[in-house]
């Protein structure tokens, strides 16, 4: 510490000129990321799950639609799936839709937290007891899309998965 202590008047925010440029550039860069993801999410439709209905995990499986989990055909190539997650399986375990279908997934849990990730798509949801997780996607390419539990749910968590099968030459 120098003996002649500088006074408050001489104190000032100090940064190297290059460092100042980096500060401005960093802010522009981060703003660009924020705009890009907002456009994809809110304008182009690459959306994350939002706030859906609440349910009671103790009784949700007792009444429709959850008492009969499975696929429902809404017509015009649109489908919805009501799915129950539990230690250590999904109901239903297998879903078949024709290529070109639009499928909305409603998933909830009757016990602990689970995850739902449909491989090769952007369907990726936490499944939390008491809440319904919902996302919709379109399936044009025929093939098998496994859906796997990607949130630790107990000792046999690794065995928990199911399959969406998109069939070629559907009726749509």
């Amino acid at each position: 510490m120098s003996t002649d202590t500088p006074t408050e008047e001489t104190a000032s925010f100090h940064a190297d000129p290059y460092e100042r440029k980096w500060i401005m550039f960093s802010l522009v860069l981060l703003a660009a990321f924020a705009v890009t993801v907002a456009v994809a999410g809110f304008a182009l439709g690459f959306q994350v799950p939002g706030d859906e209905t609440r349910v009671d995990p103790r009784t949700v499986a007792d009444a429709p639609p959850w008492s009969q989990p499975g696929l429902r055909d809404l017509g015009n190539g649109e489908y919805e799936v009501y799915m129950l997650a539990q230690q250590y399986l999904f109901q239903p375990r297998e879903i078949r839709v024709p290529a070109g279908s639009t499928v909305t997934f409603y998933v909830t849990s009757v016990d602990v937290q689970h995850g739902f990730k449909l491989q090769d798509t952007n369907i990726n949801m936490q499944i939390v007891p008491g809440h319904v997780s919902k996302l919709t996607a379109e399936f044009d390419t025929p093939g098998e899309y496994p859906y796997i539990c990607h949130e630790y749910c107990g000792v046999a968590h690794a065995a928990m998965f199911g399959s969406l099968i998109v069939e070629a030459g559907g009726d749509s």
Binding site: F42, G50, M125, Q126
Partner: peptide, 22 residues
């Protein structure tokens, strides 16, 4: 990707997370 939180609030936290990267 949690249920029970509106997408708008999630986005606000995303923007603030870019802030903490600064």
């Amino acid at each position: 990707v949690d249920p029970g939180i509106p997408t708008g609030w999630k986005y606000i936290h995303a923007a603030l997370t870019y802030g903490v990267a600064f």
